[in-house]
């Protein structure tokens, strides 16, 4: 028996109610879905054997996404389309598989190669859109943007890689932010909204792209 695990890489969306499901719970959800799909699963070694799977990046509670990535391993090579169908049927409807392919075992882990995340933020109807634009510009001219999270203060300015302000047909502003997601240098868009005096709960925050170093 060939004991080499077969790696599969999947891109998926997470929307609706599931945006209130956190990172660890999402991981358990995938483990159970993989069990329901009845695949020849690969387990980790050790006393507490777990299904071998790997999520690229924690999606903060409340965010939706059309760009999440996941690796999982099977003991056998199966037809990719067959896996896609079975796994989709085993997943809650608010997770959609967007892409699935076999990936080489030699590739680095998703977490290790993640560089940045792109977010699309739909703002609530603003009383004064001009003022918001001015606030945003003002923020970005600063060289230091200190943000404290879990008693640790980091400078957000170098982590904000790109930004773009659009207005949509309903006169709601849409902000596109590209933020660093590298290990130890991860910025969250909701922190930036708060700095601008906007309640993230009033916005729709969608992760639309993950950028990896090998891309």
């Amino acid at each position: 028996m060939n004991d080499t695990p077969v790696r599969y890489r999947m891109k998926y969306s997470k929307t609706g109610n599931l945006r209130f499901i956190g990172h660890l719970d999402t991981q358990v959800m995938f483990e159970r879905a993989l069990r329901r799909a009845n695949f020849p699963l690969r387990y980790t070694q050790g006393f507490n054997k777990r299904i071998r799977l790997n999520l690229a990046s924690a999606l903060p509670l409340g965010f939706i996404s059309s760009a999440e990535m996941l690796d999982f391993w099977l003991n056998l090579e199966l037809d990719v389309e067959d896996i896609r169908q079975k796994l989709q049927n085993a997943l809650p409807a608010e997770i959609r598989i967007l892409e699935l392919r076999q990936a080489d075992n030699s590739l680095p882990s998703l977490q290790a190669s993640l560089v940045s995340s792109e977010y699309r933020i739909t703002l609530p109807a603003l009383e004064s859109p001009k003022e918001f634009k001015a606030e945003l510009d003002k923020l970005l001219t600063q060289t230091e943007i200190p943000v404290t999270r879990r008693d640790k203060t980091i400078n957000y300015r170098p982590l904000i890689l790109e930004h773009e302000l659009q207005s949509n047909p309903h006169d709601c502003f849409v902000v596109k932010l590209t933020l660093s997601s590298a290990p130890g240098a991860n910025a969250r868009p909701d922190d930036i909204l708060e700095l601008l005096g906007i309640d993230p709960a009033d916005c729709v925050i969608e992760r639309v792209r993950l950028n990896f170093s090998e891309d």
Binding site: N17, F20, A33
Partner: peptide
């Protein structure tokens, strides 16, 4: 833990 209130389970 907002997941308590939203349903949507398999």
């Amino acid at each position: 833990k907002p997941g308590r209130y939203v349903g949507g389970e398999h």
